[in-house]
Amino acid sequence: MAWVAVSVTAGFVGLAVLAYCAFKVYLGVRRFGRELERTRSRLAPKQSALRDELSRLEGSRAPQAREDGVRSS
């Protein structure tokens, strides 16, 4: 009968280890989310400036006549 108590105890210890690991993963994901948000806020002005520059360049580009496209032989 002692083996029943040992197996139940081992099961609870295993669940405790899994709960600890899950909590550590949860904390890591939260920390990673904060880091992503901070990086996004730091890059937003630069991304906006690049987007404005791209639209300015596209607006100043001379339109080209359409041809038949690329032909392969």
Score class of each variant (00 low, 15 high):
M1T: 09
A2C: 02
W3Y: 08
W3T: 05
V4H: 12
S7Y: 03
V8M: 03
V8K: 08
A10T: 05
G11M: 02
G11R: 04
F12I: 02
V13I: 14
G14V: 01
G14E: 01
V17S: 00
L18M: 12
L18V: 09
A19Q: 08
A19H: 08
Y20H: 13
Y20V: 15
C21G: 15
F23L: 14
F23S: 09
K24F: 13
Y26M: 05
L27Q: 12
R31N: 07
G33I: 13
G33W: 07
R34F: 01
E35K: 06
E35M: 10
L36R: 06
E37K: 10
R38Q: 14
T39Y: 03
R42Q: 09
L43W: 00
P45D: 00
K46A: 05
L50W: 11
L50S: 15
E53F: 09
E53V: 04
E53I: 07
L54Q: 14
S55V: 08
L57F: 12
G59D: 07
G59R: 10
S60M: 13
S60Y: 10
S60P: 11
S60H: 07
R61N: 09
P63L: 13
P63H: 12
Q64M: 13
R66L: 08
R66A: 05
R66E: 03
E67A: 06
E67C: 04
E67L: 01
E67N: 05
G69T: 00
V70F: 10
S72E: 03
S73R: 15
S73P: 11
